[in-house]
């Protein structure tokens, strides 16, 4: 999964009989790994030509700061996706964690740190719930998390009574408004998360087992690893990072209601798949994932500046997701042919 290893694979000589297919496969793997970066650069180029206000310090800074929480969710979701699962409920996890954290601060005057800690704990528990159900009932995580998503939605609206909460203590607003060395705190936080998660994948046995789980679940079980436990952890990690993202989102908006959050799952999922995280698990890398988020961000921003409107963006996003999934499938079918 590390880039160095991938590069090694392409250099080492391959079996004789299927050498052509393999060569093709390896090149595609390389292409796929960096395709998203080229797509990103191409988009930046196109929009710089189309709109004068696109390639400005201010606009580019905006693109980054407006997307920190999407990156955090996408990174959290990557655990689940790379492990071969999916979590459609992250949007309503954000909704529920957001309103509960806000209520703790605004209605019940909890200290900010306590509200944040409890909010993060809540997010982790929501992930745990998903993980336990997916690991126990051996059914499609798509259906499980679709169901829990609706449940979280219900709870969120009941708890918030559809109210909006705003004007949080300044310590909470600081998450998004604070700066360190001229760079917003949430950008630092995102960077930290990206680096830590990348290290988890490349340098820890837990990360290696997550990738293994997505690669061959039965083999991992036979290797003596509790796949149930690994699965549960993966959803918990996703829940935790989703809650972190929620804090950033709520702090940035300085207001929240139950409709804040839903929709994020689609953006994060699209970004992950555009970033080369395999829909079937076992593959993905964090830098490309981040690039995937920015592809969507640049697209949204650029289309807006070019005056293409919100609805046209929906169409383009959907089309991009389809294209990315199709590419993923094509990639897998090639691989199977090579194996046979």
């Amino acid at each position: 999964m590390g880039m160095d290893e991938q590069a090694q694979v392409s250099r080492s000589s391959m079996g004789r009989s299927s050498a052509d297919g393999l060569q093709r496969h390896v090149h595609l793997g390389f292409l796929r790994k960096y395709a998203v970066v080229f797509v990103l650069l191409a988009l930046i180029l196109v929009f710089s030509l189309v709109s004068d206000s696109f390639f400005t310090v201010r606009n580019l800074t905006n693109i980054v700061t407006q997307n920190t929480y999407f990156i955090i969710v996408a990174v959290g979701l990557s655990f689940v996706l790379i492990a071969g699962g999916i979590d459609l409920s992250v949007g309503y996890q954000m909704s529920l964690v957001g309103v509960v954290t806000a209520m703790m601060m605004v209605l019940w005057s909890f200290p900010v740190w306590a509200a944040v800690v409890l909010g993060l704990a809540l997010g982790t528990v929501l992930g745990l719930v998903n993980g336990l159900i997916v690991a126990r009932i051996k059914t499609f995580p798509l259906i499980v998390t679709l169901a829990t998503s609706v449940i979280f939605q219900g709870i969120s609206y009941i708890v918030s009574q559809a109210r909006t909460f705003r004007d949080f203590p300044s310590a909470f607003q600081f998450i998004a408004k604070g700066r360190l060395g001229g760079v917003p705190l949430d950008v630092w936080l995102t960077l930290l998360i990206v680096v830590v998660v990348a290290l988890i994948y490349y340098q820890t046995k837990w990360g290696m087992r997550v990738v293994a789980l997505g690669g061959n679940e039965e083999a991992l079980r036979l290797a003596g690893v509790s796949t149930r436990r690994t699965k549960t952890w993966v959803y918990m990690a996703c829940g935790f990072l989703t809650a972190v993202a929620t804090m950033v989102m709520v702090s940035k908006a300085n207001s929240v209601q139950s409709s804040f959050g839903p929709g994020t799952e689609f953006t994060a999922l699209t970004a992950a798949i555009v970033g080369g995280v395999s829909f079937l698990g076992g593959e993905g890398n964090i830098p490309a994932l981040v690039a995937g988020v920015f592809v969507l961000a640049v697209l949204g921003n650029g289309m807006q500046l070019a005056g293409w409107g919100v609805y046209a963006q929906f169409i383009v996003r959907g089309a991009i997701l389809l294209a990315a999934v199709a590419f993923d499938e094509y990639q897998k079918s090639l691989k199977l042919r090579v194996k046979a």
């Binding site: 090694q8 694979v9 046995k205 290696m208 990738v211 293994a212 290797a223 003596g224 690893v225 194996k339």
Partner: peptide, 17 residues
């Protein structure tokens, strides 16, 4: 029971890293 997404080394050590 091998992992096609892993190299030889990772296949050998998975589970007992």
């Amino acid at each position: 029971a091998l992992f096609n997404n892993f190299d030889v080394t990772k296949n050998i050590f998975i589970g007992r890293e």
